[in-house]
Simulated assay, not measured.
Amino acid sequence: MGAFDGAFDTLRGDQVSSGFWGEHTSTIDWCENNYAHTPYIAETVNTLTNLPSILLGLYGFYAVVKNGLPTRFAFCYLGLSLIGIGSFGFHMSLRWEWQLMDELPMIYVVSYAAFLILETSPGLKLRYGVLGPGIMVLWDVFVTTSYIYLPNPVYHQIAFAIILITTTARTAYLAFKLPPNHPSKVKIGKTMAWGVVTFAVGFAIWNVDNLFCPQLRMIREHVGPLGVFVEGHAYWHLMTGYGSFLIFTASILLHLCIKVSPDAYTFDEKAFFPVVYPLHSIDRKKVKENGHSR
């Protein structure tokens, strides 16, 4: 890390700064006490709460393949799994290289979602040819390179927030333009709203964890094993993983309504883990016959 070696040591406070995976080189250490449960995992609760996101991403990928949706949507869900794997390694080891595997895929996945939501011309062919993917890749390369040379967590959060807010605003605009009172519009709106609210509440709980860390540590010591239920960053993992899954599902249906037809696909908005599927098998067949599986 060069000039930044030791620059963020004060963030660790009285935390243990080394363990089974060696010296902690990450720029962030969280409120959970290090190695409180096992000598092999720095932050046990923060590590294990990434498993649902990994599994949700794999489930979404399976649903895309099973239901015959264009393959491009499978990468959204796989991206969720990739973020979960990176975060798992980061909290397990508190190593800088694993921190990158957690934070950079967040940029990649949301920029990919932004690329998809900008492709709004009829049909599933790429509207801008290679230009759209090229701009996305250039943005990802820029953020990756600059973050490696300027490893400040605030910089990453700002870059992530810019692309996330832009994508969310664009998605809301496109959803508003769907035919009035169409069932898909209601489904997309409710599911997207639940996803955003879940994401936001998780973010708020995480910040409570940051602001009141000393008090929360005292509570954890007092309640013993039940202290796992007041690990705020763990709720961030669970809620953003689920919120992202809902947002991806709503965005996929929105995309297909615009690119194919508002009447060709749907999902069960009452399901806890909704996935998009064709209303009729003939719709799936048409997509494949027209070469729109990508």
Score class of each variant (00 low, 15 high):
Pro180Asn: 07
Met136Asp: 05
Thr171Gln: 08
Met136His: 03
Ser146Asn: 09
Tyr147Met: 08
Val186Asn: 04
Ile188Ser: 00
Arg170Lys: 14
His156Lys: 08
His156Cys: 10
Ala159Cys: 11
Thr168Cys: 13
Gly134Gln: 03
Thr166Lys: 12
Ile158Lys: 05
Pro179Lys: 02
Trp139Ser: 00
Pro180Ala: 04
Val154Pro: 13
Tyr147Phe: 13
Thr167Asn: 13
Gln157Gly: 09
Val143Gly: 03
Val143Glu: 00
Leu138Gly: 03
His182Gly: 00
Thr171Val: 10
Trp139Arg: 03
Gln157Thr: 07
Phe176Gly: 13
Val137Leu: 05
Thr168Trp: 08
Asn181Leu: 10
Ile158Phe: 11
Ile162Phe: 15
Met136Trp: 08
Thr168Ala: 11
Trp139Met: 00
Leu174Trp: 07
Val137Ala: 06
Phe142Glu: 01
Leu174Glu: 07
Leu150Val: 15
Pro153Lys: 08
Thr144Gln: 01
Ile162Arg: 09
Val137Met: 08
Pro180Gln: 06
Tyr155Ala: 11
Phe160Tyr: 15
Asn181Lys: 10
Ile165Val: 10
Thr171Pro: 05
Trp139Ile: 07
Ser146Cys: 08
Ile158His: 08
Lys177Glu: 08
Ile188Met: 00
Gly134Lys: 02
Ile163Val: 08
Ala175Tyr: 03
Thr168Leu: 12
Asp140Asn: 10
Val141Ile: 09
Ala161Gln: 14
Asn152Val: 09
Arg170Ser: 13
